[in-house]
Write a protein that binds this DNA or RNA. Structure first.
Length: 133
RNA sequence: AAUCCAGACCGGCUUAUCGCGUCCGAGCAAUCGGGCGAGGAAAGUCCGGGCAGCGAAGAGCACCCUACUUCCUAACGGGAAGGCGGACGGCUGGUGACGGCCGUUCGACAGCCAGUGUCACAGAAAACAAACCGCCGAAAGGUAAGGGUGAAAAGGUGGGGUAAGAGCCCACCGCCCGUGGGGCAACCAAUGGGGCAGGAUAAACCUUAGGGGCUGAAAGACCAAAUAAGCGUCGGACGUGCGGCUGCUCGUCGCCAGCGGCUCGCAAGGGCCAACACCGACGCGGGUAGGUCGAACGAGGUGGUUGGUGACAACCAUCCCAGAUAAAUGAUAGGCCAUCCGGUAACGGAGGACAGAACCCGGCUUACAGGUCUGGAUUGAGC
RNA sequence: AGCCCGAUAGUAUAAGGGUAGUACGACAGAUUUUGGUUCUGUUUGUGGAGGUUCGAAUCCUUCUCGGGCUA
């Protein structure tokens, strides 16, 4: 049971991020970023390059400054979301060995709720979102 | 013990499991083991430094900042001690104006007898002085006691004096000038003289004294990769030119080549014009947005001794104490400690202030549940 | 992270330290059969706190909010 969360699973490249958000605005077409809403998130993801070997997806978590003015609140939400992903990401690998080809390469979780919600609720939303992916 | 005031400090603790960042060690590697891992404000960016780059790292002016004194400090607009002044409370002196002592607390606290400006309304009059009512006088005129206005009206109180009055005269209070004394100084107390200079405002211009070059780690250095060497507009030829570390002046540094055409001249040499190139500025287009250093040993922390009223300094011992970069410091489950609610109690339930490092320090300011300590005041109780 | 500006009525914008205006709105009334146009009147404000001053939108300090610039 893999529950780690290393540097390679974080989406850091400005280029990839720009691509993800740019393509995400024109969703629906095949080959581009897909998006769906599921409380408390809006999820954006890019499919994997079929040439490269399958690996764990790189993710990014976003909490808007507009709704949460204090840095402490944003940090708390970001950490809860990341923890929920870390504990449940094995559902992306149903065979138990590793991620399958069809799982996405990069995912963005945009936090859309207006209040700080508890870890249990975030985890519930995260399980549903990963199932959908 | 309670309340209030002033100052200083703490700001949840702990166990287990799963994780994250970084450093060290082991290992060929996968990985394993160990150490450390947010704050008193990390915040606001209001000051001061370190550090870095930038014209001679030039000068003067402008501009900006500071403002009782002495000291502390790397420096400061910060701090300490002292002085002076105000407010409040208590006691107290004097007929009165006005003082004296003690305590608490506050003060951007240099200079409007260098100059200039402003002072609405009201009021006779707002600073050169004058005179509305009034008072005195037969009048000419004298007067600034009283009235009222205002934030402010040309010293005040008591007495003498006078036609009525007035520093006109006297005493005291205040003010100004001087003398010697104490104190490093701000200033203090004493003493002599002068009937008295003369409103407020400098967080108004200003004066005096002192200080400030500018820009900030997205500074800056290096490695790697990639694009371009293209287009457009404007400007430029030894000058009243363009550019450069805010502005202005001076200075200084850099740049300004060659060719052609027309023309003046006997010539040396000069003038004008166009295009291209060059240089500079701005814009468009296109490319890259990876890594290393800066950057974690410092005006460092803790403890002690000595000096100093104190801020602080010196010396000795000891410790290494976050270092990320789309950015770690988290999640879950227990126990404890405060707090709140219900309950006589056992107990049950809720639930942890303000707030998250980003080059580093010293301050200031602002936010903050609850708690601890010290000093002072008042009230109550006991011995 | 650093730096720089700004805040006046519902909106836009003035105001030498001395009664806070102007325009468009909104509301009411008049004109009109009704509505519009037009005319008259009314309403509403200096972001908060403290200080300097006799007196502050203005000067100073501080907080809050909003905006902008910097590879």
């Amino acid at each position: 049971m893999q529950q780690t969360f290393t540097k390679s699973e974080r989406l850091c490249s400005k280029k990839v991020l720009g691509e993800l958000f740019k393509k995400g605005s024109a969703s629906g077409q095949p080959g581009l970023a897909q998006t769906f809403y599921l409380f408390p998130f809006r999820v954006l993801y890019l499919p994997q390059d079929p040439e490269s070997p399958p690996g764990w997806p790189a993710i990014v978590i976003t909490v808007p400054k507009r709704t949460f003015k204090r840095a402490v609140d944003r940090n708390l939400i970001r950490r809860r979301v990341r923890e929920a992903y870390r504990l449940n990401k094995t559902s992306l690998a149903p065979n138990g060995t590793g991620p399958i080809k069809s799982s996405p390469a990069s995912i963005a979780f945009l936090y859309t709720a207006k209040q700080i919600i508890s870890f249990e609720e975030i985890e519930k939303g995260m399980k549903l979102a990963l199932k959908k992916l």
